[in-house]
């Protein structure tokens, strides 16, 4: 029965992607892309990838859609027809597709327990990680401890994106710079009341996700994004000027490096204790406690970095929308 559900979801995914090719109205393209991300996340849930569905839903559908919408608000909605023929493009696409199909012939079949993927490295993550690291959520223990350097690299990627966006668009320093006359969704009184009720709930849920990441789906990335989404909701319903008053862009710009340094400091502490970089066993007398401390602190570092970067990027984009709207 779940196979049938898989098939329908996959079919819907392909249909949405096809439709996106032919739509010229960018607003609809972004809306369909939002649906595409949601479908991807739903598919990940049916394929047992719970943390990934969490991230795809919050980061893919949440942040990407909001950024694209604010870009379109400035660059206009209609896509002009391109004149040159698409034979070259179809040629390349068919070539790549053919190579991929050629590659799928010897691929191990879907879902078999004795695939090479499950044999060499994975059994240790599944059997010994609950005892060695003491976390029920194996994905978090692999993410934070076994391959902790990957996650450190990922936090630096998020930081690099922040550097890129700040240097390109420039985050407004002082709140006064933002024009005062612009108001949020003023006439939507009902929306403002409901937003006022739901924002504390969202922030509470973000904190739950941050510290629940060891036991259930969740973790630093998802929590950072959900917390940023709460402030984005506040900025959208009430005016950007008010949101900037609550969390100023300067604070956000300086918070991102602090998150990355917090992550790196855990590694340095384990180096000073004589072990290798990011080795949490030396953080406490008992290795398993050390793992717990290490994972909680780096998840916090990741959460702070992702929260400040996502909010900083939103401020940069919303600032541009304000500037363009005023002219």
């Amino acid at each position: 029965m779940t196979v049938l559900i898989d098939l329908i979801l996959l079919a819907m995914l392909v249909i949405t992607a096809f439709r996106i090719i032919y739509i010229k109205d960018l607003f609809s393209v972004v809306m369909l892309f939002g649906i595409y991300s949601f479908l991807c996340a739903a598919l990940f849930v049916t394929l047992d990838a719970v943390d990934v569905a969490f991230t795809e839903a919050s980061v893919g559908a949440g942040i990407s859609t909001v950024l694209m919408l604010s870009t379109i608000a400035i660059t206009g909605r209609k896509e002009k027809l391109s004149l040159h023929s698409h034979t070259f493009a179809t040629l390349i696409v068919l070539l790549t597709g053919g190579a991929l199909i050629y590659g799928t012939f010897d691929m191990p079949l879907f879902g078999l327990a004795d695939n090479p993927v499950h044999e060499h490295v994975a059994p240790r993550y599944i059997e010994t990680s609950p005892t060695e690291i003491g976390l029920p959520n194996m994905v978090t223990s692999v993410l934070a401890s076994y391959r902790g350097f990957d996650t450190f690299g990922e936090t630096v990627v998020v930081f690099a994106a922040a550097i890129g966006v700040f240097s390109l668009l420039g985050v407004r320093g002082k709140p006064t710079e933002l024009l005062a006359q612009e108001q949020g969704l003023t006439q939507h009184k009902v929306l403002r009341v409901v937003a006022k009720i739901s924002i504390p709930l969202i922030i509470l849920f973000a904190l739950y996700v941050q510290f629940h990441g060891d036991f259930g789906p969740g973790g630093g990335f998802q929590a950072g994004v959900i917390a940023a989404a709460a402030f984005i909701l506040y900025a959208l319903t009430f005016s950007l000027r008010k949101a900037v008053g609550v969390v100023s862009p300067r604070f956000v710009k300086y918070l991102a490096p602090v998150g990355v340094l917090l992550y790196a400091s855990v590694g340095l502490v384990s180096m000073l204790n004589g072990a290798n970089f990011l080795d949490y066993n030396v953080l406490a007398a008992d290795p398993v406690d050390g793992q717990h401390y290490g994972i909680i602190i780096i998840e916090l570092g990741v959460g702070i970095t992702v929260f400040s970067v996502m909010l900083g990027i939103f401020y940069a984009f919303a600032g541009q929308v304000e500037k363009a709207n005023v002219q």
Binding site: A49, D51, V52, T55, E56, V59, G60, I63, S64, V117, H118, V121, A122, Y125, I126, M138, V139, V142, L143, R147, D150, T151, G153, E154, V157, V158, A161, F221, V306
Partner: peptide, 16 residues
């Protein structure tokens, strides 16, 4: 298998 999930968590954030 948890390992592909960890890799894809990284790849999604890189994509964003």
């Amino acid at each position: 298998n948890p390992l592909p999930h960890v890799l894809i968590l990284t790849a999604i954030v890189v994509g964003v």
